[in-house]
């Protein structure tokens, strides 16, 4: 899976699950402030990403440092690389 594939699939989750227009999905967008997700949405974001990428995120401490869409895309890329190893 390429970096572009990961970005596209992460963005799909925001469009499909949270009805956010593609034009707003820029890497610097803050997930809370700019994209409007709240605590319940974060739970659903984790569920959707785990299903989409076949990864386990829920108990990963690194999730707490994620602020922007770009942070999240890079985190998923890192996870995929770790699985690849």
């Amino acid at each position: 899976m390429t970096e572009q594939d990961v970005i596209r699939l992460v963005n799909e989750v925001f469009v499909d699950s949270f009805e956010i227009e593609k034009s707003r999905l820029v890497p610097e967008a803050n997930i809370f402030m700019d994209l409007g997700l709240d605590s319940l949405d974060i739970v659903d974001l984790v569920v959707a990403l785990q299903k989409k990428f076949g990864v386990t995120i829920r108990d990963d401490e690194r999730v707490r440092t994620i602020r922007t869409l770009g942070d999240l895309q890079q985190f998923i890329l890192t996870l995929k690389k770790e699985i690849g190893k």
Binding site: L40, D41, V43, D44, V47, Q50, K51, R58
Partner: peptide, 9 residues
């Protein structure tokens, strides 16, 4: 028997 797939709402 997997709770982790349940959405919050």
């Amino acid at each position: 028997n997997d709770l982790s797939k349940l959405t919050s709402t």
